[in-house]
Design a protein around this nucleic acid. Structure first.
Lengths: 337, 337
DNA sequence: ACTCGCTGTCGAAGCGCTTCGACAACCTAT
DNA sequence: ATAGGTTGTCGAAGCGCTTCGACAGCGAGT
């Protein structure tokens, strides 16, 4: 293992000079810098992370806490995680992967040990147990998702309320009056995951404003669950012509079931999905959808965090505006009678 | 921030004693130990990770390199990652998330800087650029996946060759003679991803042994791509009655298309999938499938790695035996006219 | 010519921990 | 009673780096 001291010796300068070449925190003559850089290359020097962390009390690591659960759309999580990792790298940070399993303990461990300089939390619940800790520590953090009380916190998320509103508006504009919402699994609502509830709020509020009838049913996803849910919906509201689907694993089953029942999409019923674009275009009917901007959320979270670590950057809530892309699954409501 | 020295002072012992209480590397009297532990609790002490890493030259971190690409089944990757993270924690390790983006550089960076003690690589190609580096360093590593040459490496993977064979056998036993394989996206084969090719080898070898006809077609996934692929397959081999699907995003499209064409599953055609159980049971027809044991792979990889870090544990290739679960998508071949 | 203020470099002091050797205190075996 | 072995504790060195203050050298301003 090559050390700073060896590089210094090889280049004929002091250790501190090498350090300054590396960090750029003091000016170094071009000549010296080149000599040092040459030595670094020749010796294949890599600064030791532990020593750095100890001396500078900075680890250059960002902790990312991902949920253990797999009842919410996994590819979105993965995409966010990857976006976080790659964006972090462009800022010189590495990413430590924590699973939600440890909960608050993980937060304590990481902040306490200086393992990471900052953290990003995903899958935040409305009243998350980790929040008090986050507020009381001086370690910067960013949440992906929105808790009930955002005071003193920085959050990045899709504006799910606006997303809900947008879906309703689109259907309303096309003349649909009876709308059914196929939601996430019941467990997601039971644990008060913000995004699901906020979407629902947006849907309901706008539906009321526009005078539409709205029926919301959680759904586990998969064919069997969807079949049961759809049957119930059509039983209660036979006139339903518009669907909003928020559970990606219910999308395809819904389309198949509708087809099976002889209801054409989009001639008889319209379907709007809230899902990643990839899902929307790969479905059996190209879906009109509001995309979940996973990459942007991940990137944004890191950028906000880095800003905080550099001193500028303040607590704020960033809501990404939803965008609805019209594809082949929505059309004018069938004229009644 | 509380330091070891402060704990020592509070407990009335020396710093080294506290250290030994923490590590258990020397015997400590019950009395002293309890006093120290009490102080640790009272002061809320957390050992500083950087200092620890520097002094012990161990970071207690395992690096996990995941692929950036999203053309292979993402939930499997995620499940592996989560299994790695949770298993690592039970052994006292944290996980550093690296994306494939940096390639060999990441390996160099991590080993050179002592950021991690060991690493796990996913999505290994048959002739991976990172392998020479891995062989030449003394840092322990485990691959999830199988390169062409495994000498000097530890690998964990599902036995995909056996998986292919198993699928063929199952269909053969049911009387199917003409089998079509719907594979991963062409890009996956082009970059020589081991698992895809090994599955194919297993399929072909066993098909030949059993005297079956086999047709393999890569497929991007999604409805449109699957429609084209299926049309070609049925055009070339109209007598095809058995399908093996390895691309999870082609499964549902295939089922829908078959239904659409009036081919009943499993009465007219049988479908075997290679996919996680969750996908198999959520499909529109409960699928006979060989499960991809993501959790087991992640756990196994970590355990092997930890063994290596502790000195025991040697290079070896662990192939997990495939298990085929019969569900509702396979049945006897229709008697030829 | 003399001071002032840069610029570029160095030395030394830690950062908080692990670990080695030393050693006092005690126990056991002779 | 003495040598030998345990057991529990301590002090000090050092892991590889960052960073602060010091200062030599030099050009510019008066």
């Amino acid at each position: 293992m090559v050390t700073l001291a060896e590089v210094a010796q090889h280049a004929g300068v002091s250790a501190s000079t090498v350090s300054y070449v590396l960090s750029g925190k003091r000016s170094i003559s071009t000549n010296t810098r080149q000599r040092v850089e040459q030595s670094i290359r020749e010796l294949g020097y890599h600064p030791n992370a532990g020593a750095r962390a100890l001396a500078s009390s900075k680890s250059n690591i960002i902790a990312l806490m991902i949920p253990l659960r797999t009842d919410i759309y996994v590819p979105v999580m993965m995409e966010i995680a990857i976006a976080v990792a790659t964006t972090a790298r462009t800022h010189g940070y590495d990413v430590l992967l924590l699973t939600g399993e440890e909960g608050s303990d993980a937060v304590r461990r990481v902040t306490g040990s200086g393992l990471a300089d900052a953290m990003i939390l995903m899958d935040v619940e409305l009243d998350d147990e980790r929040l008090p800790l986050l507020r009381s520590t001086d370690q910067p953090s960013v949440l992906i998702g929105l808790p009930a009380d955002t005071s003193g916190l920085t959050c990045v998320d899709l504006d799910f309320a606006a997303t809900g509103a947008l879906c309703v508006e689109h259907l309303a504009m096309l003349g649909h009056r009876d709308i059914a919402v196929i939601g996430e699994a019941p467990a997601v609502y039971e644990r008060h995951t913000g995004f699901a509830e906020r979407t629902l709020d947006g849907l309901r509020y706008r539906a009321k404003e526009l005078g539409l009838r709205l029926l919301h049913r959680p759904c586990e996803g998969g064919y069997d669950a969807m079949a049961v849910t759809l049957a119930r919906v059509l039983d209660e509201r036979p006139g339903t012509t518009g669907f909003v689907v928020q559970n990606e694993s219910a999308v395809e089953p819904l389309l198949a079931l509708l087809r099976q029942q002889g209801r054409a999409v989009p001639e008889d019923v319209s379907v709007v999905a809230i899902c990643p674009d990839q899902v929307a275009v790969q479905a059996s009917v190209r879906l009109t959808s509001v995309a979940i901007p996973a990459q942007e959320m991940g990137r944004n979270a890191v950028e906000r965090l880095v800003a905080k670590l550099q001193g500028h950057g303040s607590d704020e809530v960033v809501l990404i505006a939803p965008e609805l892309t019209v594809r082949a699954s929505t059309g004018p409501a069938p004229t009644a009678s």
